[in-house]
Amino acid sequence: MRDNRILLKKLLLIACLMFGFAWALIPMYRVICEVTGINRVVKADAAPAAGSSIAPGVPVKLVFDANVQAGLPWQVKPLVRSMMARTGEFVRVDYEITNASNRRVVGQAIPRYLPAAAGPYVHKLDCFCFKEQAFAPGETRRFPVVFVVSRELPAELSELTLAYTVFDVPGKVAS
């Protein structure tokens, strides 16, 4: 009988400890994730190392282009064909898009960079390519693109081209 009581107490103790363990799991998971870094799904941008000055802007040639696939009812053209800018400064350029058909259509612009390696260095703040655009028959509209070319642009990329292709979105009719 005494043996039974001792074992009973030990088992009850295990049960109580496991109840506490459930609560201890909360800080444990946090610590394990912090120490091992396995849960760092969203990484903060690394802060610039102390003392390093921001690289001065360097000149870069920007070329703007647009094209439409055969059979689609669009006319797309940049108002400026090319310009000189400096890295790290805001650039604004306007595009003019016309719905050349006699129906209402919804279009979506897809950007492309040449050379493709320049893509990560173009930081867009505003672009008509961010969302679908609805057009009345024959409507013409102007859209701005605002972007910054990063100061980290490698020196060998002194000229880059930003090109847009506009598609119509099937199944969508502008309201």
Partner: peptide, 8 residues
Amino acid sequence: AVMPVLAG
């Protein structure tokens, strides 16, 4: 071992 964890 585990029912207390569920209770927790």
